[in-house]
Design a binder for these strands. Sequence first.
DNA 1: AAAAAATCCGATAAAACGTCGAAAAAAATT
DNA 2: AATTTTTTTCGACGTTTTATCGGATTTTTT
Lengths: 244, 244
Amino acid sequence: MATQMRGTPPREQTPSTATTDGRGSDQWEALLELATSRPKRAPDRKQDRSKRTEQQILNAALRVFARDGISRSRIADIAAEAGISTSTLYEYYKSKEDLAYDLPTSHLVSFFQEYRLAAAGKTSAREKLSLYLSMSADFAREHADWGRLFYLEIWPSVLVSETELRHSVNDFARIALFLIDEGVRQGEFPEGRNTYETASILLGAVNQVIITWLLYRRPRNLTKASAEITERVLTMIANERTIS
Amino acid sequence: MATQMRGTPPREQTPSTATTDGRGSDQWEALLELATSRPKRAPDRKQDRSKRTEQQILNAALRVFARDGISRSRIADIAAEAGISTSTLYEYYKSKEDLAYDLPTSHLVSFFQEYRLAAAGKTSAREKLSLYLSMSADFAREHADWGRLFYLEIWPSVLVSETELRHSVNDFARIALFLIDEGVRQGEFPEGRNTYETASILLGAVNQVIITWLLYRRPRNLTKASAEITERVLTMIANERTIS
DNA sequence: AAAAAATCCGATAAAACGTCGAAAAAAATT
DNA sequence: AATTTTTTTCGACGTTTTATCGGATTTTTT
């Protein structure tokens, strides 16, 4: 349980609610562009050898973290798993924490890229939203090691707000919020509701399902379950009585 | 890993709650009794002095964990904050992990007790559910240090399922699920829906709001916001089209 | 192929964790 | 109320894990 959508960033809100047609999709593109181009905090390595080493570290760390949890994992184990010495690892990451919080970034960017591609065909806000939430669950299922690390250890942590990763985490919520606002503008969802609240309901429900699955492998079929709950909630939201 | 039941085993008293069907409220009372009597894993100290020391450790740990996060907190800091030596702390808890995961138990039991009292007057499932969710948000607000620790570090953690705390965590979800089922039985909510799913939607939404508040202090008024979102979701659920 | 730059690692320091036996405090016994 | 026994506390010390640094090794540049 325990949902985290530490999204809904208090201040920054890129998309303003302009009721223009062309403007809206400009903003949408800008938002996706931002999310898919977050810099991977790369220490500018010169040699190919380094890129390979870095990848080995990342792969090893993901395996070890997913197996033992961050707190129980030891730097030495990760280095051994990567086939390098402990001190070499410190050439790349200045601490275990640093490594743990940098690790999920690339996966998250990949998710946004995959989504961007898949959403290209969709026109209605509801369709885009439905796809977004289903894909996020599916992504966690397909990359379960990453999912465990991200949803159960990184995202919920108080420390995430101190790292670069927070930008991607904020993007995640911002995209959902944007689509809800768009849905309201286009008459797919009733007006008059607090859209932050609507976003909390949607993201909360889906995250809840994902986390339960990561912890207990239940429901058995995450893809089906998340699609189902997404549709159910979207329908509830679409059918809510308008408040003026 | 056996459940260590110490102290007086919770014995059932015949519930005097005489509502519509006696069977259902028997189960309800049993559920609450269970949740409010989870044993606090206390190493049975003989002297009063020890109880004071234990309390000092718990208070100190809560402050330090909430301030630094579990991973950055050091045993020595907690001991210093509690005014005892490091080795004395080890007399009480065998590791930092042990301490961190034992810490939230007593608060959680208090919450269930408070809820049990407050819910005594309520009759409809919806009222009980509404109260339950609102109170859980309010409890986190009133005990913000505990809330940060529990919602942001403990609950979502992979490790929680290996600790005694998991029982209380499971109770939390079980109570919500029970009330939803009861609501369906009593005709307050439409039939035919997956009630696990319904529980995920409700708990997910409320947790989402709580976590956002713990991290950003937004929305400003958590009590109002959580009551609002609770009512909104409950109304959505109550108004859903029946599926047969 | 020599010089320069980038990368890697063994040795070792620093920090945090955890243990143990003995001292101090409280309780029980006489 | 002195003495014995039990409980609690703590300083000293051993272990594990984290982190640093200077030089050796490999790669790139000239």
